[in-house]
């Protein structure tokens, strides 16, 4: 089977992970005008919590059920007691504090689990490969694509079909107008933060069996997430999906074409997109 097809599927899987890391960052930026440099650390901590639960209980499924909600709680606390004080501060203060928080998390992870990365075993059920004629592909990676696709659909439904989703979408246009309708925007901010941290933590947990948990995985994920947000358009759910998939596929295809340049190409892709559409693929004025 063609290498490019395999890389395409790999790219979709990676892209879905990128989407899950980025969507929270994008919506937080779009609604609160808040730059969260700690978002990559949520991804990191999600991976390590997953590792810790697997190490303690042996169950990846339990880890997947426990780690992301723990991250949601972490994100909620961080917003409520630290970051919410910075909403009216200039961006450079937000960057300073969230970067500090990211470092605290990263150092904390190294203190508890060491400076060397940890492997997380693939759950027994998903070990090995699926074979369809000449198509051979790891089961776990297929699971990641299916699971994240399902989750994305559920999120989309919640965003498009519920009152709370409508409030969130309204918030990306004007939080002042939302407040004028008697809606507590600060509660909305906390919830959004928790949701973003949940998704980033889940992304970390899902990646762990593929590339392990590594104390330095935060900054890389964060920079990719910023690229995705810029490509997709700030505050846009579908933009984050399109941007995540695009970057995943570009990176993955390039790794077989020109592996040294795979990481550069995501920035080239970003530059091309903003040349043509300065507000991103699905951004708006």
């Amino acid at each position: 089977m063609s290498l490019y097809l395999i890389q395409l599927i790999n790219g979709l899987g990676i892209g879905m992970i990128y989407f899950m890391i980025s969507v929270g960052l994008s919506i937080i930026f779009g609604t609160m005008n808040f730059v969260n440099f700690a978002h990559g650390a949520f991804y990191l901590l999600g991976a390590y919590l997953c590792y810790a639960v697997v190490a303690a209980t042996g169950s990846f499924w339990l880890a997947l059920a426990v780690a992301p909600p723990a991250m949601a709680l972490t994100g909620w606390f961080a917003e409520r007691y630290l970051l919410s004080r910075l909403y009216h501060a200039p961006h450079q203060y937000q960057i300073l504090v969230t970067l500090g928080l990211a470092l605290v998390i990263q150092e904390g992870v190294m203190l508890v689990w060491g400076a060397i990365g940890q492997n997380v075993a693939t759950p027994v059920l998903l070990q090995g490969v699926v074979v369809f004629g000449s198509f051979v592909y790891p089961k776990y990676r297929l699971f990641v694509i299916g699971f994240t696709a399902l989750l994305t659909f559920v999120l989309w439904l919640a965003l498009e079909r519920t009152r709370y989703g409508a409030i969130l979408r309204a918030g990306t246009e004007s939080t002042e107008m939302v407040a004028l309708l008697g809606i507590d925007i600060f509660r909305m901010f906390s919830f959004t933060f928790a949701l973003g941290a949940y998704l980033a933590g889940l992304a970390g947990g899902l990646t762990a069996p593929i590339s392990g948990a590594d104390p330095f995985m935060g900054p890389g994920a964060l920079s990719v997430a910023f690229v995705v947000v810029v490509i997709g358009g700030i505050g846009s759910f579908s933009g984050a999906l399109a941007g995540g998939l695009l970057i995943g596929v570009v990176q993955s295809e390039m790794s077989s074409l020109w592996s040294e340049g795979a990481n550069i190409m995501i920035y080239v892709a970003m530059a091309l997109v903003i040349l043509v559409r300065p507000r991103g693929l699905l951004g708006r004025a």
Binding site: A166, R169, A170, E173, M177, L180, R284
Partner: peptide, 10 residues
């Protein structure tokens, strides 16, 4: 408000 503040995407 003067600008009406209709949510365009909703």
């Amino acid at each position: 408000p003067e600008h009406r503040g209709i949510f365009q995407l909703l």
